[in-house]
């Protein structure tokens, strides 16, 4: 694609993204779903730094997400600290957690890395459930209501949330794209494609992987705060969930196009609404039918093109050009 066309498409997509909420009911269901689309796109993009650029299949990213959600919310509940300030220690804690889990999992590849990170996410869930004094335990934690406004990160309508989620997605995407074209991005790609060769031409593979993990974990934690302020209530089983967070963010990036800048956005635009639609359509039918339909759809997409929707789009584009 020519650069001019690319920038035109980006500008168009942004214009549509800004315009869409004004055509929708501000407290409506559709705006709420779009907020989730943007949030999950940003989460999948944060995951993409580790899962895409470094090709390390993390299934434990809920750990960092939950740390961020709990971090800012505990500070708000116990000390009245604004979520905007609580965001920072939450992100720092997410980064530190990512650094700590990187050390023992550094040399693991493929399935072994996935299993180790999966276990780490589960450990965090158990800790949050058990350490009731800090987290409120299994009964969850609520964000105390205050007078709505940007300063307290609370709003009556969905629309401000929508724009904050959009801003978060743009920031995470800009960081991802920046990393891709930086030294770090080239080094991560080198490690992904041939770790020994990368090391032999001067890439510090350990350091490179840790930096990627820390950035990814910190961003994920920051998005945890956004989620907490959006949902007002959550418990350990929600924010540290394997299917609802860890697997879902990986799935979104993979279905969209893993390692690409717009893959996670395409993936979230596709998966989140379809999941909602399947729930709505089939929830009054047999139990679990919506999950089954959703799962089958995922299988079809991945069978059709393992590199994701973006690649299917590219193929269609080329095919259109030929006829």
């Amino acid at each position: 694609m020519k650069p001019a066309l690319k920038y035109a498409l980006i500008a168009l997509a942004l214009a549509v993204a800004v315009a869409v909420p004004f055509g929708l009911e501000p407290r409506g269901y559709a705006t709420r779903i779009l907020c989730l689309v943007l949030l999950f796109a940003a989460m999948a993009q944060a995951w993409n730094i580790v899962g895409g650029l470094a090709n390390q299949m993390s299934l434990g990213h809920a750990a960092f997400f939950g740390i961020g959600a709990y971090g800012s919310t505990i500070l708000l509940v116990k000390y009245g600290i604004s979520p905007w300030l609580g965001l920072l220690p939450g992100m720092a804690a997410g980064g530190v957690a990512a650094w700590l889990i990187s050390l023992p999992t550094m040399r693991l590849r493929g399935h072994y890395f996935a299993l180790a990170t999966l276990a780490f996410g589960e450990v965090m869930r158990l800790v949050a459930n058990t350490w009731g004094g800090l987290t409120g335990g299994p009964s969850g934690i609520s964000v105390p209501f205050s007078k709505p406004g940007l300063a307290v990160f609370q709003f009556k309508d969905m629309r401000p949330y929508y724009f904050l989620m959009l801003a978060a997605l743009l920031v995470v995407t800009a960081i991802f794209a920046g990393i891709r074209h930086s030294k770090l991005g080239y080094r991560l790609r080198a490690i992904r494609e041939n770790p020994s060769a990368a090391e032999a031409i001067g890439v510090d593979t350990t350091r490179t992987k840790i930096i990627a993990a820390v950035v990814s974990g910190a961003l994920m934690a920051g998005l945890g705060t956004f989620y907490a302020q959006f949902q007002f209530f959550f418990d350990p089983d929600t924010v540290f969930s394997i299917p609802a967070i860890s697997v879902r963010v990986a799935m979104i990036a993979i279905v969209g196009g893993v390692g690409t800048t717009i893959g996670p956005i395409v993936g979230a635009l596709f998966l989140i609404p379809i999941e909602e639609l399947a729930n709505q359509t089939f929830s009054d039918q047999a139990a679990g039918l919506s999950q089954l339909v959703f799962g089958l759809l995922l299988i079809v997409v991945i069978l059709a093109e393992p590199r994701g929707l973006l690649e299917i789009g590219r193929r269609l584009w080329r095919w259109r050009g030929r006829t």
Binding site: K183, Y186, R187, R189, A190, E193, N194, S196, A197, A198, A200, I201, G202, V203
Partner: peptide
């Protein structure tokens, strides 16, 4: 041992980093 999915230029460039 090249980075097979990358371009020739990107392979060589990685050494220069």
């Amino acid at each position: 041992a090249l980075f097979l999915d990358s371009s020739v230029l990107d392979n060589v460039l990685t050494g220069g980093l």
